[in-house]
Amino acid sequence: MSKLKIFTKGFLKENPVFVLLLGMCPVLGVTTSAENGLGMGLATTFVLLMSNIVVSLIKSFIPDKVRIPSYIVIIASFVTIVELTMQAFLPELFDSLGIFIPLIVVNCVILGRAEAFASKNSVLDSILDGLGMGLGFALALTILGALREILGSGAIFGINVYSGDGALVFVLAPGAFIVLGYLIALSNKLNKKLYNK
């Protein structure tokens, strides 16, 4: 696989949200606005990138049988670092993401990439993979958040685009499932067109 492909596969072809359907809890839980989606996406990207780097650096020192617990400890440490830093410098985002920040630990995307990619590949490739997958995840969250915000409260990134109240259901829980359903259908269609000729 070329370096470019390793980086770009996370955006559409193997998008963690739309195609692999991983890490669905934060996808649905925090995307009430574009800003929250982007914030969560970037926090996850950071953890994914750092854990990929560390895992690929130490892969040959870790005995096979304890690799999963070791990865989990590494991931949990980076999550706590994000948690503390965000609390100190972005307290408002910290408040609105709430419990979903510690829950980055159990986002299957991260452990999945550590096990499936970083534990078998070089540091450089793992960096590209982590960045690509993370940004693909962030992209998906931002799109979903932006759509829900536009449909539900008539704004994007907090800036009003039309007056009036919007269809509230899209900001509430049911709207999350419904909008994501249509987005996945759309990405399936796009992928079919681009890759399965």
Partner: peptide
Amino acid sequence: EGMKGVPISLVVAGLLALAFM
């Protein structure tokens, strides 16, 4: 065709969530 599988399941889940509201 395009909604088969996961997409339609998510829409159904949305309706279930609506009922729970």
